[in-house]
Design a protein around this nucleic acid. Structure first.
Lengths: 226, 226
DNA sequence: CTCTGTGAACCACTTCACAGCA
DNA sequence: TGCTGTGAAGTGGTTCACAGAG
């Protein structure tokens, strides 16, 4: 069972995929979407390289991880590669997302149209502030009390949580999310969280990003010329 | 001049710093801030490791890049290490930031209190929508027309731009930012941008983050057990 | 005995370079 | 001929493990 004879192409997702590859797959999918043209149109690792800023070799290597979709001499079929990438990324089905924390940032995220385009659907929001609970966020998403998370999450089949609560509440809220059976969390709270068993956690940390920029300003490798 | 005899500690910022290290330094600084206690209190790479989730060896390696601030057997002096990190990160002086694009996400960022805490100050916002230009964003930050960027940026000594415009406008706006003499940009537009000469660009891409989470949901390494 | 600073080993990811198929 | 897929080499970052300072 370790070596089922591949019917030439296709191929399942391999045991281990390098972390950086996952992010790039998402970029490839986006570029392919913008390239999508006539039936049967193809592209190449070279073109994708120009459009994505990654090297052609890198792209071939990434794609080859999942099987061989290319045709030597011709390149990759745009629409079938795109379909396969969506499938690999699991975005061929709509993903149901909960927004936990409906403050400033949280509600701004609700207004971000990119989610829908990428097949992510925010189906519920949560908060603890009495002023917000019970109302609807912009876009008509109902705001529930955090205590209702387990119930609502399972009723709504939530798969991903966006965590946008204050730092002090972040770890406890993350734990509650985990207990509610949600296994993927995108955290915006600027603090290092301990991921509960079985939970995939990714962090978007504005402070870290800004401080990194500040670092480069302060230590510009070629600051002398301006 | 390549080898001035270090007066034991201190040490300038080295030629090359690994990219991941920069982000970690920011995390160390944050944890040190939360640890700050009595005069002369110390901590160790072990403790910092617990608090940050990075390995103790990793932390020692990162810090040693910038000189030797530790004392064998005792650890690191909390407040002096913190001060030195702030200096290395360039956040011992306030950094002046412009917000370019004052839509949903942009204004939400204005409400993010973390900036001030970390010594980043949003001094101006920009937009092209007549309905927004001329008004003040929440927090009292004036919204200028994008055309005034060069003028305002230099008058206000803006060093960092936060780019929060729609995808179609992103590259052109980035170019305008570069022409205005700003050399560090944090981009929220979900698209791969070409950084103009001399511009440090960092990306925060929600779609990529969510698709990465989706990937792990779809290909959970241990999906069988739940 | 503790905890740093650091060579050396290790590992993960990337790039090179080319054989081979269309 | 053009472009993929992939061994092999290379690069960069991390971990090990320990000498040595306090």
């Amino acid at each position: 069972m370790s070596d089922e004879p591949q019917l030439s192409r296709a191929a399942a997702v391999p045991r281990r995929v390098p972390n950086p590859t996952v992010g790039r797959l998402s970029v490839y999918a986006r570029v392919l979407a913008s390239l999508q043209g006539d039936e049967g149109a193809t592209t190449s690792s070279g073109v994708l390289g120009e459009r994505t800023g990654f090297s052609a070799a890198q792209i071939r290597r990434d794609l080859a991880l999942f099987g061989q979709f290319g045709t030597r001499g011709r390149g990759y079929d745009i629409s079938s590669l795109r379909a396969r990438l969506d499938e690999i990324l699991g975005v061929h089905v709509a993903r149901r997302v909960a927004l936990v924390g409906s403050g400033n940032l949280g509600t701004a995220l609700l207004g971000y149209t990119g989610f829908r385009e990428h097949n992510f659907e925010i189906v519920a929001a949560f908060d603890v502030a009495p002023s917000r609970v019970g109302s609807k966020a912009p876009g008509g998403v109902p705001i529930h009390h955090l205590d209702d998370l387990p119930h609502v999450a399972s009723a709504e089949n939530v798969e991903i949580a966006i965590l946008a609560v204050p730092v002090d509440a972040a770890q406890a809220t993350l734990n509650a999310i985990a207990r509610a059976g949600i296994h993927a969390v995108l955290n915006f709270a600027p603090t290092r969280l301990e991921a509960p068993e079985g939970v995939r956690l990714r962090n978007v940390d504005l402070s870290v990003e800004l401080e990194a920029l500040s670092f480069y300003l302060a230590n510009s490798p070629d600051a002398e010329d301006r």
